[in-house]
């Protein structure tokens, strides 16, 4: 297979690499100026091109990644304060504020909701699996007629 012949290929590669850098280093104190330098852009040009592809500025995207990772950690049962610092926030109040704005729930409520859901799924797994699949896969108790 030959590579794609499309315009602005190198521009795309540099912007994608910048995005992947944010994906990998979201938990660190990322300096977006450095990412712009790494991607061989002026800061202004970098932000403009990044937004054209991802519909968010790099800074907004970094916050989105941190909130998404926080959702995953909370779903796994990680305490709120541990989650906050693990995804790169320095203050629980700013984390809670941003999390609530993004998800509609406070982190503590989100954690509780998912812990309760996890317990329910563990206790009654078949309540969360469509019956047709459960029957086909042999997971339903044998029917007595």
């Amino acid at each position: 297979m030959t590579g794609p012949q499309y315009p602005r290929m190198y521009l795309y590669r540099r912007l994608v690499q910048a995005k992947l850098f944010i994906d990998r280093h979201y938990a660190e104190a990322i300096d977006l100026d450095c990412i712009a330098d790494e991607a061989y852009f002026s800061k202004f040009h970098f932000i403009k091109q990044f937004k054209a592809i991802y519909h968010q500025t790099p800074h907004q995207y970094l916050k989105t990644v941190r909130i998404e990772k926080a959702r995953q950690l909370l779903q796994e049962g990680t305490p709120v304060s541990d989650t906050c610092y693990a995804v790169g926030f320095e203050s629980i109040s700013s984390f809670s504020h941003l999390f609530k704005r993004a998800t509609g729930m406070a982190p503590s409520a989100y954690l509780q909701q998912h812990q309760a859901l996890k317990a329910q799924v563990a206790a009654t797994p078949l309540a969360y699996i469509p019956g047709c699949f459960a029957e086909k896969y042999g997971w339903l108790p044998k029917q007595q007629f």
Partner: peptide, 17 residues
Amino acid sequence: YATYEEMTAKGVEFTKA
């Protein structure tokens, strides 16, 4: 193009560019 570049960078195998 951005999605293709990202998935390729992550090791996804494309059979058509």
